[in-house]
Computed example of a mutant assay.
Amino acid sequence: MNIKYDQLCIRNAEKKDCEQLAKWWNDGKVMAHAGFPNGLGTTATEIEKQIVNDSDETRRRLMIVYKNTLIGEMSFYVYENAKYEIGIKICEFDYQEKGLGKIVLSMLIEELFHMGAQLIFLDTNLNNTRAQHVYEKLGFKRIAIHCDSWKNQLGELQSTVDYELTKGDFCNFKNR
């Protein structure tokens, strides 16, 4: 995958990206929202072993590039009946809250529907209201809340919210 729009690019993660991914994944500030305030404790070698098996038919780790700078990552997982789960992290804090998330999500979602997705879904921490606002602007529908359903690395109970998106509900911010 190599999707370009304006000064943004979403491309497949490659071996050369593994050091950067390890840096982000081991940073508790970047990973706290995902339940890992101490980071993942992973290595570039371990990440490389994961991405070598990526494919558009199963799962794919993607890099977000803005003005030739790596700013974050995305992923998608393919399930039965053309259902796709997605994830996103703008990992570089200087690029958060600039409107880039809804544009790169639009780029990815548009491509996944073009690839045959019938339903796109995701979940997020219930406390992550900024992300929920973006997902709802894109047309995602809140389908469930799971209160105190898991514990983060510090043993603190966390709640999540599930979202789903169909092609007919998609509001594409790429073209605005």
Rank of each mutant, 00 (worst) to 15 (best):
N125D: 09
G116K: 12
V78E: 06
T42Q: 02
R60I: 05
E57F: 06
N53V: 09
F36S: 08
R59Y: 13
Q96W: 08
E110V: 10
L62E: 05
A34W: 12
S75P: 02
K67Y: 08
I47D: 00
Y77M: 08
F93M: 09
P37A: 06
K98R: 09
T129G: 02
E97P: 01
I90Q: 00
V30T: 07
F93P: 05
W24V: 01
A44L: 02
A117H: 01
T129P: 07
I64R: 00
Y84N: 08
R59I: 09
F121W: 10
D123S: 11
H133Y: 15
R59D: 10
L119D: 14
I47A: 00
N53D: 10
F36K: 01
D94A: 15
T42E: 01
M115S: 13
Y77H: 08
L62S: 06
T58W: 03
E111P: 15
I71R: 02
S75G: 08
E97Q: 14
E111F: 04
D94R: 05
K83Y: 12
Y66R: 04
A34E: 08
K89Q: 14
K49N: 14
V78G: 06
I109C: 07
M115I: 08
Y77D: 05
I120Y: 07
I86S: 06
Y77I: 10
H114D: 14
N127S: 14
N127K: 15
D56S: 15
N125W: 04
I88H: 01
N81E: 13
W24Y: 01
T129C: 09
A34Y: 04
N125L: 06
K102W: 11
E92Y: 08
A117V: 12
L40Q: 01
L126A: 12
G39I: 03
L105T: 09
N128M: 07
L126N: 07
E57M: 00
Y77V: 05
A82S: 15
Y135V: 12
E80I: 13
G41H: 03
I47S: 01
R59L: 06
Q50A: 05
L122Y: 00
V52N: 10
Y66V: 12
Y84E: 04
I120G: 04
A34I: 06
W24P: 03
A82H: 11
A131N: 04
Q132F: 13
S55N: 10
K83L: 15
F76L: 05
S75D: 14
W24H: 02
T43V: 04
R60Y: 07
T42A: 02
G41Q: 03
L119W: 04
N38I: 04
L100T: 11
N127M: 06
D54E: 09
E136W: 05
I90Y: 04
E73S: 07
T45D: 09
E48F: 01
I109K: 00
F76A: 00
